[in-house]
Amino acid sequence: MKKRVLIVLTALFALLNACAEEPAVGTSEDTIFVYRILRPEYQVNGELLRPEKIPLNGTGDPVSQAASALADSPKSDRLQSPMPEGVIIIKTEHKENFVTVYMNSAYLEADAIDRSVLDSCIVLTMCSIKNIDYVSICVGNDVIADRLTTDDILLSNTITSPKKAKVRLYFPKKGENILCSEYRPITIDNDNSAERRILDALLEGPENAALRSAFPDGTIVLSVYTQDGICTVSLSGIFPDDATKSKDDGMLAAYSIVNSLASLADVQSVQILIDGTHVRSLWGFDISRPLVKNESIIGSSVAE
């Protein structure tokens, strides 16, 4: 009899727990990732910065909430604050997808590396807020770091071996005309070049829910090869005159390929062909000539 009561109680407790945990899962709109420094004893395999998930207060401004969360001490004992002594965030300004963070003058006296670590934590934290892509750091009227994105920060050594690495793939961000990167491990061998692996992964689509695929389903790569720094990609299953697509879609699709392939040291520019022939435009965007990497349309994304 006692046993049965115990089982019922346990089940009830489990149910209550499950209910209690439900809201915490939430969406990225309700939470932000606040980045901090891992204490040296927990730094394994080069990991230096680690996020802490903080729920947002629905009524307040998420950017100022992120700024105060950064100033707070971390909840986990494994983490320590990235703020050097005496440095404080005076205020934040928020315009569309652009955040400016104003620091006090103590910031200028801090070590260069401590400043970089703090900058990185600020950028990663701010960009974990939905629709924030760029962060500038200012002291007074001086802009110390301009238009930083998460793409400017390399969190770990992405190269495992000469044949195996994590590379950045660029996908359009949902609801915006910018590209954001996502890391994807690729392995190259004699049959599959790095270019081929990158394009295959690109056409598979993004894993990050905030990003979307630039190409319609059924798009395939006919061939890809690099010569004299120009990588020639021939796509198929795509209609360059598709009326449902805009010029911006064309630009994002083209640069998602160009920026991703330009991650390779050998690739300076990319020539896109459709079904093996040169076309004037992809959905109205000019692809007749080789394109070089476009840094200006790169925004921020934070892995969830």
Binding site: G46, L48, L49, L154, S156, T158, L264
Partner: peptide
Amino acid sequence: TARLDPSVGRYAMFSEVRR
């Protein structure tokens, strides 16, 4: 020297570099 995704211009936020 990375051939795949060389990262010149980015910040190397590795614990080794910081140390």
